[in-house]
Amino acid sequence: HNLTITQGKLFFHYNPKLCLSEIHKMEEVSGTKGRQERNDIALKTNGDQASCENELLKFSYIRTSFDKILLRWEPYWPPDFRDLLGFMLFYKEAPYQNVTEFDGQDACGSNSWTVVDIDPPLRSNDPKSQNHPGWLMRGLKPWTQYAIFVKTLVTFSDERRTYGAKSDIIYVQTDATNPSVPLDPISVSNSSSQIILKWKPPSDPNGNITHYLVFWERQAEDSELFELDYCLKGLKLPSRTWSPPFESEDSQKHNQSEYEDSAGECCSCPKTDSQILKELEESSFRKTFEDYLHNVVFVPRKTSSGTGAEDPRPSRKRRSLGDVGNVTVAVPTVAAFPNTSSTSVPTSPEEHRPFEKVVNKESLVISGLRHFTGYRIELQACNQDTPEERCSVAAYVSARTMPEAKADDIVGPVTHEIFENNVVHLMWQEPKEPNGLIVLYEVSYRRYGDEELHLCVSRKHFALERGCRLRGLSPGNYSVRIRATSLAGNGSWTEPTYFYVTDYLDVPSNIA
């Protein structure tokens, strides 16, 4: 807008934040220059609390790290170098490059900038070799853009010569660093050979998330399962459950009422301010606690030095998902009996873990797994792929695949051998790939016309006998059925096997 004052003059007093240069501009645009008398524009009460600059400061050096910015700028000295009290560095987070010096300023003089007072450097006698002032900004957020400017702080001049310097606002972004852990990993099994893994992005990506790394490792069953005799009275049979499938998407929606109208769909109840505040506090606490764990609990591995020492970490090797089922080394339970199943799973520490690289999504279907087997899954978020990966501390989750139908069934015939004193040795093959492992066998036998009897055969007993022995049988026709019990439950009964026990007292003698 054009402003013209045809008559009258300007009068400025007691404006401590208004620089004289701005008042002189007002004289020019209003056409009143030359009308004012000496005392109409006070030299001592206008701009006496402001830094009124008329020179431009330029930054000469900028260096960044993930949490620091090192700045240096060209030296500046007023005509009387004693008038320079120091520099004021202003900075704040700036997602967009549209910041002005006066953003967030209120009537009390406060604003949204963080201000650092910096002492002037030592003055050199040689004007050509003056030290460049600077400042190291610490405690910054990774991968965050900051708006920065600097200006001088000078003393009051009796001659009211307006001098000083100020830089333009520059924008500097800190470097990326390792992201925080992925949030809320959930693993479920939808079949006997697959596990579905879902997660949420890290709360602090500290860069642009480029991919996720998912490692999985087959877990050995508890050692007590191999040692305890679950045929003993009072000892509860062990059981394991597989990871249940995901709930429906509708039930997972946030901010939804727990109660549904019987007449149909209901609208979600909005969260109160107290609920939102509580969630923010919980989120802040979780982030602080995660940072504490990362800094205190997890110790970084030592990389190899120039002395030739090897990095103890196993090298990563990509495998196809079809090879995942046989990740671990199978060892027989008892070496003397080769027909026992290889369900003991000690994992070799030198073995390469299978892994998958996930790009542009937060889910993965891990296939080719062994049925009813526990897996430990390790999830890392990465925001750099080359020249070397920059990934987060791992988040861990466990899951067990679903049982395989008929995996616990005894394959092959049940054979028998009759000894003296009416002892019958029953023999059968253990299931080759049971659900988890076989903890015991149930032997059901009966003599024709009598009630059915049951015998429990422990895992250890089966390994020693290759089956079991029935003792003290009365003469007669017998039928026997056997079924295995694994961590997933009972298998199917075998087809009945028949044998006849004679009275050993009636056996004919070869003595003449």
Rank of each mutant, 00 (worst) to 15 (best):
207 G>Q: 00
208 N>V: 07
208 N>A: 06
209 I>R: 14
214 V>N: 02
214 V>S: 05
215 F>K: 05
217 E>Q: 13
217 E>F: 03
219 Q>Y: 13
219 Q>V: 15
220 A>G: 15
223 S>H: 07
224 E>L: 10
225 L>Y: 08
225 L>W: 11
225 L>M: 07
226 F>A: 13
226 F>V: 13
228 L>M: 06
231 C>Y: 01
233 K>V: 14
234 G>Y: 06
235 L>F: 08
235 L>S: 04
236 K>Y: 08
237 L>V: 07
237 L>Y: 15
238 P>N: 07
240 R>V: 05
242 W>T: 07
242 W>E: 06
243 S>R: 12
243 S>K: 15
243 S>G: 09
243 S>D: 07
246 F>V: 13
248 S>C: 06
249 E>K: 13
249 E>I: 14
251 S>L: 08
251 S>K: 14
252 Q>M: 13
254 H>P: 08
254 H>K: 15
255 N>E: 05
258 E>A: 07
259 Y>N: 07
259 Y>F: 05
261 D>K: 03
261 D>A: 14
261 D>R: 03
261 D>T: 12
262 S>L: 08
262 S>H: 12
263 A>D: 14
265 E>I: 12
267 C>Q: 01
267 C>T: 02
268 S>K: 15
269 C>I: 04
269 C>H: 01
269 C>F: 04
270 P>V: 04
271 K>T: 06
272 T>A: 15
272 T>D: 06
274 S>P: 02
275 Q>N: 04
276 I>N: 07
281 E>L: 09
281 E>T: 12
282 E>Y: 15
283 S>R: 13
285 F>D: 02
286 R>P: 01
287 K>Y: 02
287 K>L: 02
287 K>Q: 03
287 K>C: 02
288 T>N: 04
289 F>V: 04
290 E>A: 02
294 H>V: 04
295 N>K: 12
295 N>M: 13
295 N>H: 02
296 V>D: 01
296 V>I: 07
297 V>R: 01
298 F>G: 02
302 K>T: 13
303 T>V: 06
303 T>P: 09
305 S>P: 12
305 S>L: 11
306 G>M: 12
306 G>W: 14
307 T>E: 14
308 G>V: 14
309 A>G: 12
310 E>Y: 15
310 E>L: 08
312 P>Y: 11
313 R>A: 09
315 S>W: 14
315 S>N: 10
315 S>M: 09
318 R>T: 12
320 S>N: 05
321 L>K: 14
321 L>G: 07
321 L>I: 14
322 G>M: 10
323 D>T: 12
324 V>E: 10
324 V>N: 12
326 N>G: 03
328 T>L: 14
328 T>K: 10
328 T>F: 13
333 T>A: 13
335 A>Q: 09
342 S>P: 05
344 S>G: 11
344 S>C: 10
345 V>M: 10
345 V>S: 11
346 P>T: 14
351 E>L: 12
351 E>A: 12
352 H>Q: 10
355 F>E: 11
357 K>L: 09
357 K>S: 09
357 K>Q: 12
357 K>G: 10
360 N>W: 15
360 N>H: 15
361 K>N: 03
362 E>D: 06
363 S>E: 15
364 L>S: 06
364 L>R: 12
368 G>V: 10
371 H>L: 07
372 F>Q: 02
372 F>C: 04
373 T>S: 08
375 Y>E: 00
376 R>K: 13
383 N>R: 04
383 N>Y: 02
385 D>Y: 09
387 P>H: 07
388 E>D: 06
390 R>M: 04
390 R>S: 05
394 A>F: 04
395 A>V: 13
395 A>P: 01
395 A>G: 11
396 Y>K: 02
396 Y>L: 04
399 A>I: 02
400 R>T: 03
403 P>V: 02
406 K>I: 05
407 A>K: 11
408 D>E: 01
412 G>D: 09
414 V>G: 02
414 V>I: 13
418 I>N: 12
418 I>F: 13
418 I>G: 12
419 F>Q: 15
421 N>Q: 06
421 N>A: 10
421 N>W: 14
421 N>I: 01
423 V>Y: 14
423 V>L: 07
423 V>R: 13
424 V>L: 08
424 V>N: 02
425 H>R: 09
427 M>G: 13
427 M>I: 14
427 M>F: 14
435 N>V: 01
435 N>S: 07
436 G>A: 14
436 G>Y: 02
436 G>N: 05
437 L>C: 13
438 I>W: 04
439 V>R: 09
441 Y>I: 01
443 V>W: 01
444 S>D: 13
445 Y>S: 06
447 R>S: 09
450 D>H: 08
451 E>A: 05
452 E>N: 15
452 E>P: 05
453 L>E: 06
454 H>Q: 11
454 H>V: 14
455 L>Q: 08
456 C>S: 02
459 R>Q: 13
459 R>V: 12
461 H>V: 11
461 H>I: 10
462 F>Y: 04
463 A>L: 10
463 A>V: 10
464 L>T: 12
465 E>N: 12
465 E>R: 08
466 R>W: 14
467 G>V: 08
469 R>A: 06
470 L>S: 01
470 L>N: 01
474 S>Y: 14
475 P>E: 12
475 P>D: 05
477 N>K: 12
477 N>P: 09
478 Y>M: 01
478 Y>H: 11
479 S>K: 07
480 V>L: 06
480 V>H: 00
481 R>T: 03
481 R>S: 06
482 I>P: 00
482 I>Y: 01
487 L>H: 00
490 N>A: 04
491 G>S: 03
492 S>R: 13
494 T>P: 02
494 T>D: 02
495 E>K: 14
496 P>L: 09
498 Y>V: 13
498 Y>G: 06
499 F>E: 01
501 V>E: 01
502 T>C: 07
505 L>T: 14
505 L>I: 05
506 D>I: 10
509 S>N: 15
